[in-house]
């Protein structure tokens, strides 16, 4: 599981944006807006984290229970897949 090639995560002031820059993805021209939590998960995915590690991260960072964190991560990954920015290996 990894982020598709050709996307750049940027923080502009306090807003997180993903800009498509790769040859395959930039034709759409669409930027994505991310919440702060999504941006955190995106960064960790870029570093190679898996679903379990992302769930752990949310539990630690936001002192949330495991079930809620796992559901949030699943939802995040589902949205990424819908937007074609996540590839499952």
């Amino acid at each position: 599981m990894k982020i598709a090639d050709g996307f750049v995560l940027r923080q502009i002031i306090d807003t997180w944006i993903v800009v498509p820059v790769g040859k395959e993805v930039s034709q759409s021209g669409n930027m994505l807006s991310l919440s702060e939590t999504s941006a955190l998960l995106w960064e960790r995915l870029e570093q190679g984290a898996d679903e379990e590690m992302l769930t752990e991260l949310l539990c630690e960072r936001y002192e949330t229970d495991r079930e809620t964190a796992a559901a949030d991560v699943k939802e995040f990954l589902r949205e990424m897949e819908e937007l074609n920015v996540l590839t499952r290996e």
Partner: peptide, 12 residues
């Protein structure tokens, strides 16, 4: 939604 398309973001 935590991720959304953003063509032109007036807020920024």
């Amino acid at each position: 939604m935590t991720i959304s398309h953003s063509q032109f973001n007036q807020e920024i």
